[in-house]
């Protein structure tokens, strides 16, 4: 069950300044909410705490490299209503080899902790509030971020 319109009105009502764009998601009727990175935590809390929709579960965090910008898609769902929602932020490194920073949502959706750490390692994203002590996937320093498009072994 997807309820983009209800979410649209919720966001419009509570924090209209955060919205960069509502974009359709593929062929579905779903819409992706693009927000500025600085509003990520705030809007995440609103989405989780809204009593009507209660998006209490982060199903997936997918990162992709789109022409040098890193696009993070958060696939959210409610365990009570089974409705789902897509939240997106994009991060642009100053130089292609630089890492980028964004807020960690692990305090809101704890199941996202490992997903963030994987993305941190593979894409060079530092999640503020979710620091990686040891490597999860890459056994040695790959000198770069292997999942970015420009990575060369």
């Amino acid at each position: 069950m997807e309820l983009p319109h209800k979410f649209e009105s919720l966001i419009k009502r509570s924090m209209p300044e955060t919205v960069l764009q509502w974009q359709p998601f593929g062929r579905t009727k779903k819409k992706v909410l693009w927000v500025e990175g600085r509003f990520l935590l705030e809007i995440s809390r609103v989405l989780r705490d809204d009593p009507e929709h209660c998006l209490d579960w982060l199903e997936n965090l997918s990162v992709m490299d789109v022409e040098g910008a890193l696009v993070l898609t958060y696939f959210l769902r409610s365990t009570q209503t089974q409705s789902s929602f897509l939240l997106r932020v994009s991060l642009a490194p100053m130089k292609p080899e630089d890492s980028v920073e964004t807020f960690s949502i692990a305090s809101i959706w704890p199941m996202g902790r490992r997903m963030e750490l994987e993305a941190s390692e593979l894409f060079g994203i530092q999640f503020i509030g979710n620091h990686r002590e040891t490597a999860l996937i890459l056994s040695e320093d790959p000198k770069g971020f292997p999942q970015r498009k420009g990575y060369r072994r």
Partner: peptide, 25 residues
């Protein structure tokens, strides 16, 4: 739950295929 996010740019190869494996939790 095994999830899969696929992005295509219309080219001959996938632009991105990302998995959400169940064992991650």
């Amino acid at each position: 739950l095994l999830g899969c996010h696929v992005v295509s740019d219309g080219g001959a190869v996938p632009n991105r295929i990302q998995f959400r494996p169940p064992s991650i939790g």
